[in-house]
Amino acid sequence: MSLVERIWWRPHAAPGETALLAPLVLAEGLFRVGAAARGALYDRGLLAQARAGVPVVSIGNVAVGGAGKTPAAIAVASRLAARGRRVAVLSRGYGASRADPRVVSDGVRTLLGADEAGDEPALLARRLPGVAVLCGPRRAALAAMAVATLGADALVLDDGFQHRALARDLDVVVLDAANPFGNGHLLPRGPNREPRGAIRRAGLVWLSRVDGADAAALTALRALALDATGRAPVESRHAPVDVVDGTLGRSLGLGALRGERVIAVSGLARPGAFLGTLAGLGAEVVAERAFPDHHRFTERELDDVLRAAEAARARVVMTEKDAVRLAPARAAEPRLCAVRIDAELVRGEAVLAEVLDAALTVHAGSSRSAG
Rank of each mutant, 00 (worst) to 15 (best):
P195C: 04
D242P: 09
R196W: 14
D214P: 11
R261V: 07
R200A: 13
P195I: 06
P188R: 01
I263C: 10
A264V: 05
A228S: 15
R201I: 15
E194A: 10
V234H: 00
V234Q: 02
R201P: 13
A256I: 10
V241M: 08
W206P: 01
V243S: 01
P191W: 03
L187F: 02
A198E: 10
L226G: 11
R258C: 14
G182E: 01
A239T: 11
R261L: 05
P233K: 02
A220F: 04
D245L: 05
R231G: 11
R196H: 15
G182Y: 00
A256T: 11
R270P: 15
G255P: 05
A264L: 12
L207Y: 11
N183P: 07
S208T: 15
L207V: 09
S208I: 10
R270V: 14
S251W: 14
V241G: 08
L252A: 00
R222C: 12
G203N: 13
R270E: 12
H238I: 07
L268A: 04
A215C: 15
L268P: 00
W206K: 01
S208M: 04
D245A: 01
P191V: 04
G249K: 03
L252E: 04
G190D: 04
R270K: 12
S236I: 06
V241H: 06
T229C: 12
I263E: 11
A264R: 05
P233I: 00
E194W: 01
R258G: 09
A216D: 11
R189S: 00
A269Q: 10
G203F: 08
S266D: 15
A202T: 02
D242N: 06
H238Y: 05
L186P: 00
G255E: 13
R196Q: 14
R200K: 08
V243C: 01
G253C: 04
L226I: 13
D211T: 13
L252I: 02
E235C: 12
A232M: 14
A216P: 12
G184E: 06
E194F: 01
W206V: 07
G246Y: 08
V262W: 08
A216L: 10
G197P: 05
E260S: 09
A223N: 02
P188T: 03
G182W: 00
R222Y: 14
S208F: 00
S236Q: 05
G182L: 00
D242I: 06
G182D: 01
S266I: 15
P233D: 03
E260H: 08
R189K: 13
A264K: 12
R258Q: 09
R200W: 07
G246D: 09
D214M: 10
A269I: 09
A232I: 09
L207N: 14
L254E: 04
G197C: 05
N192D: 09
D245T: 03
E235G: 15
I199H: 08
T247Q: 00
E260M: 07
R222E: 14
V205Y: 13
N183E: 02
T229R: 05
A239N: 14
L186T: 05
E235S: 13
I263L: 10
R250H: 12
E260Y: 05
V243D: 01
P240M: 06
G246A: 07
